[in-house]
Nucleic acid binder design. Structure first.
Length: 290
DNA sequence: TCCATTTGACCTGA
DNA sequence: TCAGGTCAAATGGA
């Protein structure tokens, strides 16, 4: 009996590890696709890794019936879901919004779990996805408020990805960007219109462990290019500007004016058809101020 | 008019 | 109990 229980525990642990590996490979695949050209072989490799994980998981799953539910809950991880309607999230939410306000539903949600969540520290706030801000919150013992973003395609494509952005220190350009959930929207459409941007200065700070060592390496390679990367853009300039403007405002409340430092002289850039007025003004954060 | 942001309200979970 | 996360009405800009 104990042996059976022990085997079951081992099986669960193996499944856990496999599922985690699968999640990491999925994230890596997404990041590789965001970074775009020249990485085709790497993407192929990731696809093979993912296939291997899937095969192994399904094989184990067929051996142990109880693992099925485990697999689903783990893989879904932080995929947020409304507390009503048991999973049929997006359409219902969307239709609710269009049909009119439903009182008593505010804040009705399931808090995201840590799985499928990873944190990046970066001087750049943008990525290949389009985000819409839905909230801001003062965080206890934090100098700066945290901004909350959801995927623009949440209602149109049911994409459940969200991210949280918080400035780390007053004297630093670094932001802590927490990504929660994977994009399920049509990323090809997004990335096709946007040049891949280098996410220099990024440090993966996964909430569970360091999940993406290969990514970390690639990120670090870009560090030295920091000051030269003012010519990359994405569809997320709007939210960048928002966060930046908030922070500027916040700084100005606590310090004084930094206009000269913010003004890096690049305005009205048009990248890939996207209007990016004042696109780069946010990049010159007052790290060298007095 | 449409869409995005702001912000106070509200709910969940630790 | 309260900090954190999300909702949704109000507001503003294009």
């Amino acid at each position: 009996m104990d042996i059976a229980n022990n085997n079951k525990a081992i099986m669960l642990k193996v499944m856990d590890q496999l599922v985690q590996g699968h999640e990491l490979a999925t994230k890596l695949q997404q990041l590789l696709s965001q970074h775009g050209s020249g990485l085709g072989s790497a993407e192929d490799l990731v696809a093979k890794i993912l296939g291997s994980y899937s095969d192994t998981i399904s094989t184990l799953d067929s051996l142990e019936p109880i693992s099925s539910s485990f697999l689903i809950t783990t893989v879904e991880g932080s995929q947020n879901a409304s507390c009503n309607n048991e999973g049929k999230l997006e359409d219902s939410v969307d239709s609710q919004k269009r049909l009119g306000p439903v009182k008593g539903k505010r804040g009705c949600y399931k808090r995201k779990k840590k799985a499928d969540t990873w944190t990046v520290e970066s001087t750049l706030l943008e990525d290949a996805f389009s985000w819409r801000k839905y909230g801001k919150k003062e965080i206890l013992n934090a100098k700066f408020p945290r901004s909350y973003f959801r995927c623009t395609h949440k209602y149109t494509q049911g994409c459940k990805a969200t991210k949280q952005v918080q400035k780390l220190e007053l004297e630093s350009r670094m932001f802590s960007i927490t990504y929660i959930g994977n994009h399920t929207c049509n990323t090809n459409e997004i990335t096709a219109n946007i040049k891949p941007c280098l996410q220099h200065d990024e440090i993966i700070m996964d909430s569970e462990e360091s999940k993406c060592p290969s990514l970390r390496t690639s990120m670090n390679e870009e560090v030295h290019e920091e000051e030269n990367n003012h010519h990359h853009g994405s569809s997320t300039e709007s939210d960048l500007q928002l966060v930046w403007q908030e922070i500027i405002g916040f700084d100005e409340e606590h310090h004084h004016h930094h206009e000269a430092i913010y003004d890096c002289g690049e305005t009205n850039a048009s990248i890939n058809g996207l209007d990016s007025t004042d696109l780069w003004s946010w990049q010159r954060f007052p790290d060298q101020q007095q």
